[in-house]
Structure formats: structure tokens, C-alpha cells
Amino acid sequence: MYYFVPVIMKKPMWSHGLSLLGFWGLAFFYPMNGVHHFLWSPIPMFAQYSAVFATVAVEFAVTSVLINFMMTLRGSAEQLKYNVPLRYMYTGAIFYWITCFQCAFHVTLTFQKVIHFTDWVTGHAHLIMFGTFGLWVLGMAEYVWPRLFGKETMYSKGLSEGAYWLLMIGVFAMFFDLTAAGLVQGFDWIGLNPWIDSVNFSKPFWYFRSVVGIMMITGLFMYALNFYKTATARAGLTAELRET
């Protein structure tokens, strides 16, 4: 991200100091975060409290990173309209901030009472792993790929755009769906209803999840097809719109 964003936009990061702060902030607070997966478990409470503290602190470091990237974008936001790799990077960055913001709340012992062991956590993991790191990798690959094969642009603008929108809408819809499902399951369990109720109540959410899952797979197939076509296209592809 720190490499590709300046390379794609051909300008330096807004603030070097802020990027240092972000890096060391994350390096400081991330190592203690592991135990936040085991709150209310038979792990000593000091480890659990330290994980809660460190995870909330991570949100501040991530916010400093996001401010830096948003200020770098300032004045160049028009590029997001036609530059799909850049759009992947910034979508991922915004999803990263949403995930960490959510995390700062649900890492507390109060939220954990309800959401631990539910689909809420699954939705959260999807948004960070696919929505952030997945989209970043896709953006980087799409920037590098045509250059590897001596082409100026990807084979099809339509495939490129279609893949982006299917993946972006798909993963965000899945995040919303699973978050809601997690709340339903969590409160249903607290209410001591028969176990089978929580399965039945979850089914509409799981069907919706299947639909958006198919959307995302379709998007990835379009993305892969575009890569294949770009690599095997005979003539050199030229960009209609030159980057600034």
C-alpha cells in the first residue's frame, strides 16, 4: 500500500512522519492483540485485559494511517473514476478503517458476551481478509499485470469494472448480512431458546450469504479471465485515457 499508492499516483505520501507513527503504532500494539480471540475463556484475565487495551489502541494507529492516505489522495481523487487498481487500494483502505472501528467496540468484554461464537465475527473476518487485504492484492496485481506483458492497459475495461463492483458490493453485503446474523444468534442464545431456533433464524442470512458469495466468485472469474486475455492478447493494448 505504501509502495503502490505513490507509484500509481506518481506522487509522494502526504506525511512521512505520520507514516512512521502509523507503522510504529501498529508495531507497538498489534503483538498483544492475539488474545482478543479468547475473551471470557479460561485464559488469565491480565492477558485478556491487555488484549482489549491494545486492540482499542490499534484503532488510533489505523486512523493516523488513513488520514495520511486520504490526504495523499487530495487533489487526485478524479483518478479513482478510471483507475481501477487505485480504486481497489482505497476501497481496501476504507474497509480497513471500518473493520478496525468495529473492532475497537466489539473487542470489549461487553460486546463479547453477545457476539462471541456468532456470525458477527465471521463477517468481521471477511471484511478484513477479503475486503482489505484481498482487494489490496487484487489492486496490486492488476497494476503490475499489463506491465509484465508489455501492455499499456488491461484487456477489457468492462471486465475490470464488473469484477471490481461485484467484489466490492459482494464483500460489503456479506459483512452486513453476517453482522446482523451474529446479533440474532447472540441474543437468541442469551434468551435460552431451543438451540434449533438459532439455526432456523440464521437460515435467511445464510441464503443471502450464498447469493453474495456467488457474486464474489463471479467477480473473481471475470478478474481471472481479464488477466488471461491480457496476457495472451497479440497486439499491444493501448490505453484510451492516459494517466495524469
Binding site: W24, A27, P31, F46
Partner: peptide, 25 residues
């Protein structure tokens, strides 16, 4: 100078996190 301080502090904090998360338990 700030980054050197941060490096040293980072390594110490990493060790501290290790200590809290698995050595102390």
C-alpha cells in the same frame, strides 16, 4: 532520532507483549 527511539521502544514493547501473552500465562 525519533525513528531510532521508536525502534528501541518497538522492540521492547514486542518483548513485553510476548511476555504478557504467553510467558506470564
Amino acid at each position: 532520532r525519533f525513528s531510532f527511539v521508536a525502534l528501541v521502544a518497538g522492540i521492547i514493547f514486542f518483548l513485553f507483549a510476548d511476555f504478557i501473552s504467553w510467558a506470564l500465562p
